[in-house]
Design a protein around this nucleic acid. Structure first.
Lengths: 352, 352
DNA sequence: ACCCCGATGTTGATCGATCAAATGGCCTGC
DNA sequence: GCAGGCCATTTGATCGATCAACATCGGGGT
């Protein structure tokens, strides 16, 4: 922000340090240090004197020196997943951006690293923790029996996960960890109710195969809503993610007779949309709901369940920072954080 | 990789350091240091002795300490752009992943930061350089009269840009900088020739408004090819990126009579595709080419110009690392690196 | 014999911050 | 009037690595 104009031009002198500031103002280095870390400890006359000098020469403390002494790097680790061949990659991007912004506000930076699989990710934790002294990690896409969270907990390394600790039904007794998640079930539930309110009676569901935490959760929401509303809940196809798979599965559902469709991802929804159009069932296109509200869905005009990624990112960072700065704080909180998504309603028809 | 199984379980001892290794093996700390930085300096009997101990206790040097002494952080900065509302965001993701992977291979890590605009990005350079001692920066999306590259050069901070130094016609005389880029013009040229070879005679172009480096470059490629082939080259619309804009502009081009269309982005191409379908000109869909080969284009079956992002990322990192490690090396190379994209041919018809 | 050299390895100083403990001044209470 | 305390500040030690300079030991070359 306040990039002092002088600082840019003049600075031909050596880089300022705590010591140089101290000498220039006639106080001791520790006083300068105090001013930075706990301003109340230094009295008024001194305070402004030193502050002015700091500003004048554009002093910034050295992260390396601080880290060496305090063993805190103020760095958080984030794994880049092999660039989503799916359309869903865009939420990954959104998440990373939001995490970066929030971390910055809290005085932290993000270090990204690539890892092919979970084992490689764990190896990376170890390496980064030892050499770069990362303060903590931000995990995404947790799954049943996730090795990563177990490993991190065993090694007492702070982390927070985007995704519930799936398959930890014994949560009450066993050690859990910090996490936030988005209530996917509430999203599909909401989608079903919205479609039903508009008159749909045979609502289909196009999901992922059983076994993925998020996928099962979204399926549950569908079931719950259909049962509550007295609608059939067996119009279901569960396939791997992807445009092609979506189109194929949709054709089967169309054959069984549906008048609306909820999908577990925008990729699948896009495939379903193509199938509807291809088989002359354009009237269904307005009764199709995807998941993630990706740019593609917005562009093409598919309704979609919008996840509050920015909010989720904020809370992730806050949770992690809290755990880092208060290592002895109450063990992994309650059912930590569960955010609700929103259904974005739109219609493909109005885009042509 | 070699996460020693013992290291995980046993380690209840203090973290190993150069000194602890030295004491344990009976050599001096400097010898251990030499072993790490220049193995040839230490003779055989010692070498394996120390190496074994290092492996045994799982020693990893402290980046902070090293950085404090050497003033090298082995960190590269990368700015997260406000998550592309466009569909094109996915190449950003691909690029970041590839950069991360390559940086790791070269012994560097990526630190990401968010900045709203170029001015904020410059402020971030200054801050990150002073506190975190970043070794260099990776820029994306350079434009005419880019402030960032000027600032970095003035301050003698190593960097490499993805994107030519647009508008530096005096490149021969003026100071240039390291960069790589993808020859967009070659891509559109190729697209035109491909379409022409398949019989198209009136090929349209849907581009961005004049003034963006990459956009003008791609337009030039179109012009060049059309002229060379003796085809009309005035079937052109230039609009801001986006699905809606693409659809509108495409309708104007359709009215003027085209039998093929080259677009400057997949977002625009997707809009054009929708317009073609909406106005019953499905036969044109197979003669539509987008740009970037995003997942959406792949999914929907639009042909697209595929940029060799991974290759570009590799060269970016290599150039930057070279400049960091050889600050006095020959000034900004020649027309540094210009990679050629590839046209991916597909047809929307075969997806239903 | 002598001197110098390369190959190995060692020691003291240093990078820039924070921690822990000590200092000196001033005020309060008995 | 003096012990005890609090405040603001200072001093010495330390985090873990590298740099620069110096020791040691065999060999050649002449």
């Amino acid at each position: 922000m306040a990039t002092t104009p002088e600082a840019a031009g003049v600075q031909r002198t050596a880089k300022p340090t705590l010591n140089s500031i101290a000498r220039a103002t006639g106080v001791s280095r520790q006083t300068v240090s105090n001013l930075l870390n706990d301003p109340d400890r230094v009295a008024e006359p001194t305070r402004t004197l030193v502050n002015d000098e700091i500003r004048r020469v554009g002093y910034r403390p050295s992260a390396a020196a601080r880290q060496l002494r305090t063993r805190r790097s103020h760095l958080l680790g984030f794994r880049m997943r092999p660039s989503g061949d799916g359309i869903n990659g865009s939420i990954h991007d959104r998440l990373l951006h939001a995490l970066t912004a929030r971390a910055h506000e809290r005085g932290y930076s993000l270090l990204v690293f690539a890892a092919a699989d979970d084992a490689a990710e764990i190896a990376a934790y170890q390496e980064l923790r030892a050499t770069n002294a990362l303060d903590g990690f931000l995990l995404t896409g947790t799954n049943h029996g996730d090795l990563r969270s177990d490993w991190l907990r065993e090694h007492a390394i702070p982390f927070v996960a985007f995704g519930r600790p799936w398959g930890r039904e014994d949560a009450a007794t066993s050690q859990v960890h910090d996490w936030i998640d988005i209530d996917g079930g509430a999203g599909t539930d909401d989608a079903v109710r919205t479609l039903a309110a508009e008159g749909a009676a045979r609502i289909g569901f196009l999901g992922w195969p059983e076994g993925s935490g998020a996928g099962d959760d979204r399926f549950d929401g569908y079931l719950r809503a259909c049962r509550a509303l007295g609608l059939p809940c067996d119009l279901v196809e569960r396939v791997e993610d992807g445009f092609e798979n979506g189109a194929e599965a949709a054709s089967r559902l169309l054959a069984r007779g549906i008048d609306a469709l909820v999908c577990v991802s925008d990729s699948l929804a896009l495939g379903a949309l193509a199938q509807m159009r291809g088989s002359g069932r354009e009237e269904l296109m307005a009764h199709l709901v995807g998941f993630d509200d990706t740019p593609v869905a917005r562009a093409v005009g598919i309704s979609s369940v919008d996840q509050p990624i920015e909010e989720a990112a904020r809370r992730m960072v806050d949770l992690l920072v809290h755990r880092i700065e208060h290592p002895d704080s109450p063990p992994p909180q309650n059912p930590v954080e569960l955010l609700s998504p929103t259904v974005r309603r739109r219609s493909p028809a109005n885009t042509y």
